[in-house]
Design a protein around this nucleic acid. Structure first.
Lengths: 325, 325
DNA sequence: CGCACCCCTGAGAGCGCTCCCACCACAACA
DNA sequence: TGTTGTGGTGGGAGCGCTCTCAGGGGTGCG
């Protein structure tokens, strides 16, 4: 009712216009207590007439209920946040949280970022935290106040439920596919070593190769296309008989593809190339990449929604891989 | 000082421990007023010892200074938010805002979303709003309270400063490049019609073709790779003599590329393909896409930082295109 | 020595909301 | 008629912070 512009209308104004007390107006607006039908109608009418909408800040401060979902992506390097995988996680979360009136915040967390987690824990505006690509070290440092409000996409830890795609299974599926196609000298371009999700595929790869009596050939990468390009000369020099290269992401695989082609290597004639992730552009490459597809969006939604409802999250779920060949 | 766990330490606790008043402690913590060196030291020591960090919520409520930057992406359809262009904008904003302690929120805004804007205007937690891909209609509906706190990436409007890449210039550069390479029957696959940023390239295309005495050939698309694929049969049937196809995004171009290849059309032998945007994967396709690169991150950072500082944004800046051929 | 001035300080009043608690009817029971 | 409920209500005290304002103690100046 004041004149100083927009947004100056508070619940007191509504209460006054409706002829009830602030308490009653509040009860009606947040449907958090009894109110007679008459009071309800009058309050709603007044709110509509004044264009009132509760201030989420004040509400959160008073009710100590957060109103935003923070997606914390670990890693200062661009390489990781630039991963289309993260984009998909974010988008899915936005789709789930948006309609519920919960905002999604994006945040980078340094590898040694426990103080950032502390800040998050203290922030009363935070309804839940989605940790993406987190190391075990950091996960172990999740403060008590955040337990129950946090979930991890990637590796898990005590007290922090985790969700992940089936890294091992996906890798195995891709490798089996290559093996079935007659490939025997298979190189794996790994992800950044500090990332836990890099480990499982490596373990799966080692196990499978050992079981088949084949040599393990690993080249370090960092999920980027550039690291895929860089891997090619190393591979060709060190193991000239290589007949397949698997990237730890599709971007890596595309980098491999490009570098091989520049060198006149025929794909998949001489060397087959496979990726991991099924990014939208994997299908557009020529030849279309063999890759493992994951229901990232479904997973992200599954993680986000219990965080929003406050319901308990069933920990350690692995979302299955689907081979795209 | 209370026992009920984490985050229960308030500025009053700090003040008590430091032996000063709340006011002084607040002044020291927010460096918003005079304080003796002694007081400063004692307060800082107490804060450190207690592990105190100010609650952004309470701070925003009391000081009416927002603490998050909202990126509002218009369009309910996945097609638009899935555009890697948006991802780049978001990432750049995160990089700028994060270090300043400002969170970045992502939000979808329906095409008819003025009430969403009203809510944003009322939200005292919002420091600034970055509108992405917004229509003129919605931009005109930006409430007064948001003017000065909002900026648009894409089209502009009265009172809302806008930033954009040089769509017309980029398109012109790509077309000139094709022309110089001897191409004369050039098709443009457009973006979604409701998006203003689709218009400028079309106008530039029409002008250029008219000036060269060449026919204008337009096929509607929606920025996706799928729409690029879909455009190919249409083009081949309607204008069999086509010797170049320009996508309105790189995704579209990659779709075109794939569809052409499937039909055995040689690229660029029979038909040249060009894109627009320089997404990371454009360089990985074979042959590498001709495209127009934009400094999206630099632009996004330029938009975001004044929004954060509260300084005035110089309106209507066009970020130059760089031809990647 | 008195005045003005500046630096520092603490009390207190909010920011807009929720929530606990006491209160008042009125109905239902003995 | 007294007693125990009930659903509905308003007062008031916060949530954790900032900010204005009046006042106290120093310094500099005439």
């Amino acid at each position: 009712m004041t004149v100083d512009g927009f947004g100056a209308v508070t619940i007191s104004d509504v209460a006054r216009v409706a002829g009830v007390s602030r308490s009653t107006a509040s009860r009606v607006m947040s449907r958090s207590g009894p109110a007679s039908t008459g009071a309800q109608e009058r309050v709603r009418a007044a709110a509509a007439r004044l264009g009132y909408a509760p201030d989420p800040l004040a509400r959160a401060l008073a009710s100590r209920a957060g109103f935003r979902l923070v997606i914390a992506v670990q890693g200062g390097s661009d390489a990781v946040l630039d991963d289309p995988y993260v984009d998909r996680v974010v988008r899915a979360a936005v789709d789930v949280a948006g309609p519920q009136g919960v905002g999604v915040s994006l945040q980078r967390v340094p590898v040694a970022g426990r103080d950032r987690l502390d800040a998050l824990a203290r922030d009363r505006g935070v309804r839940g935290v989605l940790l993406v690509n987190t190391t075990e070290d950091l996960l172990a440092a999740v403060p008590g106040a955040l337990r129950g409000r946090a979930a991890s996409i990637g590796v898990g830890a005590r007290g922090v439920p985790s969700f992940d795609v089936d890294n091992a299974g996906g890798t195995t599926a891709v490798l089996r596919h290559l093996y079935a196609a007659g490939r025997r000298r298979i190189v794996l371009v790994t992800g950044p070593r500090w990332l836990p999700c890099t480990r499982r595929p490596v373990v799966a790869y080692r196990a499978l190769m050992a079981a088949a009596g084949l040599p393990a050939r690993l080249v370090p990468g960092d999920f980027t296309a550039a690291s895929g390009r860089a891997a090619v000369p190393v591979v060709l020099e060190r193991w000239p008989d290589t007949d397949a290269i698997v990237g730890s992401t599709d971007a890596t695989a595309l980098g491999v593809l490009g570098a091989l082609r520049e060198r006149g290597v025929r794909v998949p004639g001489d060397i087959a190339v496979a990726g991991f992730d099924d990014i939208p552009f994997a299908a557009l490459s020529a030849p279309a990449l063999t890759t493992a597809s994951h229901h990232v969006r479904r997973m992200s939604a599954a993680v986000a929604s219990p965080l929003l409802d406050g319901t308990r999250v069933p920990p350690e779920t692995a979302y299955p891989s689907v081979l795209i060949a």
